[in-house]
Simulated assay, not measured.
Amino acid sequence: MQKIIHRSADRGQVDFGWLKSRHSFSFGQYYDAQKINFGALRVLNDDQVAPGQGFGRHPHDNMEIVSIPLAGTLAHGDNMGNGKDILTGDVQIMSAGTGIAHSEYNGSKTEDVHFLQIWVLPKDLNIEPRYDQKSYRHLDKNNKWVTVVSPDQEDQSAVWINQDAWFNLADLSTGANLSYSLHGDANGIYLFVLEGTVSIAGEQLERRDAIGLYEIDTIDIEASRDAKVLLIEVPMY
């Protein structure tokens, strides 16, 4: 087993007033040579955007971009004609492929929006850009994994990603144990604690701490107190 610990307090930080963001990996003004990526996982930004503010239209290419609102509403628009609100409990993905331009704004004039912006390196380059979004607000995640992003195009319950990657959410009760089995021995998992406290691989993780593990087949997670977690499985090589 290989292990990497990313503590919440050690993340990169920017504060532009309208935007407060913590970076798990090197991004923008924040650079750490030891935190470029975890396998195909390139960016995990924990963003807070003030009411009515946001990111104006800007381009991307050849990147899988996942947005997960944690509180509030994110208003999305792009040059493919998509204009949608992404609500807390939704998961959105864009395959930037040959090129896409989009904007993301706080959909509220009174409340902050908190969301995760996650980038994954694509499996195939220069594909046709695409957009998808699904709601998981009403699904039971109590002490079980819910797969919200999957490379299986036949899986209608998850949004499709152009990479051999899986995103999973779970809500754990105090004392609960949950196991996860990887899809391939060339993969690793990056566990990000949204809320609460968990124990994994001999480590205790608090709110917004993360751990990367690879050269494993399965892993067990125990909640020291009620917790919400995001587990991302990605190729390491």
Rank of each mutant, 00 (worst) to 15 (best):
H102T: 07
A33R: 15
Q53R: 09
Q204L: 04
S8T: 02
W119V: 09
S21D: 04
E233D: 03
D164P: 02
H114M: 13
L70K: 09
S135Y: 15
L44F: 08
Q133N: 15
R57N: 14
Q34G: 10
N62Y: 09
I118R: 11
E154T: 13
Q48V: 09
M94H: 05
E206K: 11
D140H: 12
S181W: 02
L230K: 02
D112I: 03
Q117A: 10
S67R: 10
A40P: 04
N45I: 08
I216T: 01
R7S: 08
V149I: 15
G52T: 10
L230M: 12
F25K: 02
S181L: 04
E111P: 03
H76I: 02
S199P: 04
I189A: 01
V113Y: 08
I232L: 07
H138T: 15
L191G: 01
L172P: 09
K3T: 09
P59A: 12
N177I: 01
F55R: 10
Q156A: 15
D152V: 12
D217A: 11
A40L: 09
V148D: 10
D226G: 11
I127K: 14
G54T: 01
I232P: 03
I189R: 00
N142C: 10
T147G: 08
G77V: 05
E206I: 00
L191T: 06
S199D: 12
S8I: 00
N187C: 06
Q48S: 08
G77H: 10
I161E: 02
H114D: 12
N62F: 11
A165S: 15
Q34E: 14
I200L: 08
R11H: 07
W166D: 01
A201M: 07
L19V: 01
H114E: 14
G12Y: 05
E154C: 08
W160T: 14
G28K: 05
D124H: 12
L125P: 10
A50Y: 04
Y131T: 09
M1F: 03
L19S: 01
W166S: 05
A33G: 09
N82D: 09
I161Y: 04
F192V: 05
W18F: 07
Q156H: 14
V91Q: 03
Q153H: 13
L125H: 13
N177E: 05
W166H: 09
N106M: 03
P69V: 14
N82L: 08
G77C: 09
A71W: 05
S157R: 11
G99T: 05
F55Q: 10
L182N: 01
L172A: 06
G184V: 02
V43L: 11
G175E: 05
V120K: 06
S8D: 04
N142S: 14
